[in-house]
Amino acid sequence: MAAGGDHGSPDSYRSPLASRYASPEMCFVFSDRYKFRTWRQLWLWLAEAEQTLGLPITDEQIQEMKSNLENIDFKMAAEEEKRLRHDVMAHVHTFGHCCPKAAGIIHLGATSCYVGDNTDLIILRNALDLLLPKLARVISRLADFAKERASLPTLGFTHFQPAQLTTVGKRCCLWIQDLCMDLQNLKRVRDDLRFRGVKGTTGTQASFLQLFEGDDHKVEQLDKMVTEKAGFKRAFIITGQTYTRKVDIEVLSVLASLGASVHKICTDIRLLANLKEMEEPFEKQQIGSSAMPYKRNPMRSERCCSLARHLMTLVMDPLQTASVQWFERTLDDSANRRICLAEAFLTADTILNTLQNISEGLVVYPKVIERRIRQELPFMATENIIMAMVKAGGSRQDCHEKIRVLSQQAASVVKQEGGDNDLIERIQVDAYFSPIHSQLDHLLDPSSFTGRASQQVQRFLEEEVYPLLKPYESVMKVKAELCL
C-alpha cells in the first residue's frame, strides 16, 4: 500500500493539533497551500530580480507567473513527485505547466533550498508574528487579574506546605514575570531571523556568478533584492546548502521555554482548584465526569500541561538535527523538520489560546482563602504575639514557653481530632496574655502579614508589564474561544 493518505478522510490519521486544537490561522501558515504558494512567490521574486539585473526574462513571463501564483494543481504535483521522487522539481514542473512561456526560467540558477529553506524562514517569521500578540493578550488578562487582587491576602506555599502570606495578585505576578520573559525572547528570536537568500547549491553562489558572467556586484544585488522582497532586513552571508540548523534550535528553545512557563502556571491553577481557592472557567453544560456528576475538573489547565510537556520535548529534535548536518548538509534534517517545526508552533498556539481562555474567566473564592488563612495564621502570628507581650512588660522566655504549650495543644486538636485551630481562643482565655487581649485582632490582621506584596504588584505592572504590552494595544480586544 502506498504511503500517505487522504487526510480529510475519517479513515486516515490526522494530527489532533490540526484537527482538534490549533487555530485556523496557525494551521494555514503550515498548510501545503501556504507552503507551495510561497515557493511560487519566491520563484517570481527571483525572476523579477534577475530581470532587473539584466537576464533575458520578459515582462510577459513575469506576468504569467504572477497570474498563476494561486493556480496550484495539487493532484498534478503529487503525481509528479511520485514520478520524480523530488518535491521541488515536482512543483517546478507543475508551475511550468500553467506558465508555459515562463517554464524555462522558473528556478533559474537556484537549488531546492532556495524555495525550501527560504519558505521555512518566512513561515517561522509569520508563525512567530501570530504567537506574539496571543502571548501579549494572556499577559494582559493576567495583569488585569493581578491588579484587581493585588491586596487580597492568601496563604503562600513553599514545598506545598503553608508559608508566609502573600497576595493573590502577587502570586499571579510570578506567572506574568515568566511570560514577559517569554514574550521578550519570542520577539528577540523573531527579529534575529535572517533570510537564507540566493546562495546556490553549497552556499557559494557559483551558479549565479556564472549567470551574471562573473559580476560579483550583481550577485550581491540579486541576494539583497530577493531578501528585501521577502520582507527581511538581512540575509546570511555564510550558508551551506541550507541555512544553519542552529536557527531551528533557537526558535524551538524559546517555544519550549514558553511551554515550561505555561505548565507551571496551569499546575498552580490545578492545585488551587483542589484547594477550592480558584477555578478555571466551567461552562453551564460542561460535564466533569461521566460517573461523578459533582466533579469540576480543571480540564483546560490539564490540557495545557499535557501539550506543554510535548512542546518542551520537541527542542531535542533540532538539537540532534543540527549535530548531524555533515559538511554542507545531509538530508537527516528533512523529514524531522517537516514534523517538529509545525508541531512546535501548533502546540504553542494551542496552549496560548487555551491559557487566554482560562485567564479571561478565572474565578476566585475569597471566603475559602480566608478560612485557610484562619487555619494557619495563628501559628504564624506567634512571633508577633511574643513581641507584643514583651512590649507590655512580659518575659520573652516565659511567653515563648506559654505559646509553645498552647500551640501544641491547638495542633493536637487540628491533627488528632480534625478540629479547627483554636490557638487564639486559648490565648484569649489565658490570664497571662490579658495585657494584649485587646491587640489580638490587630495582630491577626492578614494584611499585616503580606509585606509589600501589593506595592510590588503595582510597581511591576507599571514599570515592566504595561510598557512591554504597549506595541500590542491594537490587538488586545480579541477574545479566545474554545470549541473543545
Results as ranks from 00 to 15, higher is better:
393 G>M: 05
112 S>W: 00
261 S>I: 04
259 G>Y: 02
23 S>W: 08
212 F>H: 05
184 Q>P: 11
395 S>W: 06
399 C>Q: 04
204 T>C: 09
321 T>W: 04
275 L>V: 10
222 L>Y: 03
98 C>K: 13
293 P>G: 07
408 Q>D: 11
60 E>G: 12
48 E>F: 02
387 M>H: 06
353 N>Q: 09
350 T>I: 15
81 E>K: 00
461 L>Y: 05
375 Q>N: 06
382 T>W: 01
416 Q>N: 12
227 T>P: 06
156 G>A: 12
330 T>R: 03
364 V>L: 10
252 L>R: 02
7 H>G: 06
339 I>K: 08
133 P>H: 14
370 E>T: 11
416 Q>I: 11
395 S>E: 07
147 K>C: 10
302 E>A: 01
67 S>F: 10
466 Y>E: 13
103 A>L: 11
110 A>E: 04
204 T>Y: 03
459 R>S: 13
178 D>W: 02
179 L>I: 14
400 H>Q: 03
258 L>S: 08
426 R>K: 11
288 G>Q: 02
54 G>C: 09
94 T>Q: 12
29 V>E: 00
58 T>E: 13
439 Q>S: 09
206 A>K: 04
322 A>C: 13
301 S>H: 06
354 T>Y: 06
288 G>D: 01
176 I>S: 06
263 H>G: 08
284 K>L: 13
422 D>E: 08
182 D>S: 05
246 K>P: 03
238 I>S: 06
149 R>F: 12
56 P>E: 13
413 V>Q: 15
232 F>Y: 08
229 K>T: 06
152 L>E: 09
126 N>T: 15
46 L>A: 05
260 A>C: 07
297 N>T: 02
420 D>E: 07
207 S>Q: 02
451 G>T: 02
143 A>C: 07
228 E>N: 08
313 T>K: 05
429 V>K: 09
348 A>R: 02
3 A>E: 12
211 L>Y: 09
127 A>N: 05
473 E>Y: 13
90 A>M: 02
67 S>K: 14
165 L>Q: 04
266 C>V: 11
218 K>Y: 12
83 R>H: 13
120 D>C: 07
266 C>H: 11
413 V>K: 11
105 I>Q: 07
56 P>Y: 12
449 F>H: 07
280 E>P: 04
118 N>Y: 00
34 Y>H: 11
48 E>H: 06
181 M>T: 12
130 L>H: 09
108 L>D: 03
280 E>N: 00
353 N>V: 09
2 A>T: 15
27 C>P: 10
331 L>E: 01
368 V>C: 05
308 A>R: 02
115 V>G: 02
216 D>L: 07
84 L>V: 05
313 T>I: 10
33 R>G: 09
428 Q>I: 10
374 R>T: 07
359 S>T: 11
33 R>N: 05
209 L>A: 11
400 H>P: 02
103 A>W: 09
67 S>Y: 13
125 R>G: 08
266 C>T: 09
24 P>W: 11
131 L>H: 11
235 A>M: 15
436 I>T: 06
388 A>M: 05
231 G>T: 06
32 D>E: 15
453 A>K: 03
247 V>E: 09
46 L>Y: 03
319 L>H: 03
336 N>C: 11
209 L>K: 09
417 E>S: 10
264 K>T: 03
370 E>N: 15
464 E>K: 04
375 Q>S: 06
121 L>H: 05
319 L>R: 00
28 F>N: 08
320 Q>S: 10
297 N>I: 01
73 D>L: 06
188 R>E: 06
208 F>L: 15
156 G>I: 04
87 D>G: 01
80 E>T: 13
307 L>V: 15
106 I>K: 00
164 Q>E: 00
140 S>C: 15
441 D>G: 11
117 D>S: 02
379 F>E: 02
289 S>I: 02
157 F>C: 05
181 M>N: 09
101 K>T: 11
261 S>F: 00
120 D>N: 08
365 Y>H: 12
409 Q>V: 10
147 K>R: 12
484 L>V: 09
298 P>T: 06
38 T>Q: 08
367 K>Y: 07
87 D>R: 00
177 Q>A: 12
124 L>G: 06
404 R>E: 02
46 L>S: 05
214 G>A: 07
340 C>A: 15
69 L>Y: 08
42 L>W: 00
74 F>H: 10
28 F>A: 09
198 V>Y: 05
25 E>Y: 12
56 P>Q: 09
383 E>W: 04
19 S>V: 05
91 H>A: 15
268 D>I: 00
220 E>T: 11
314 L>F: 14
372 R>G: 05
377 L>K: 01
253 S>C: 14
40 R>L: 00
71 N>D: 14
408 Q>M: 05
294 Y>L: 03
358 I>F: 08
175 W>V: 04
124 L>Y: 10
361 G>L: 09
113 C>I: 06
471 P>D: 15
462 E>W: 13
106 I>F: 08
93 H>Y: 08
403 I>T: 08
349 D>P: 02
444 L>R: 02
220 E>A: 13
271 L>E: 01
308 A>P: 04
320 Q>D: 01
203 G>H: 01
254 V>C: 09
139 I>E: 05
447 S>P: 13
35 K>F: 06
417 E>T: 08
61 Q>M: 12
96 G>D: 07
346 L>I: 15
310 H>F: 07
166 T>H: 07
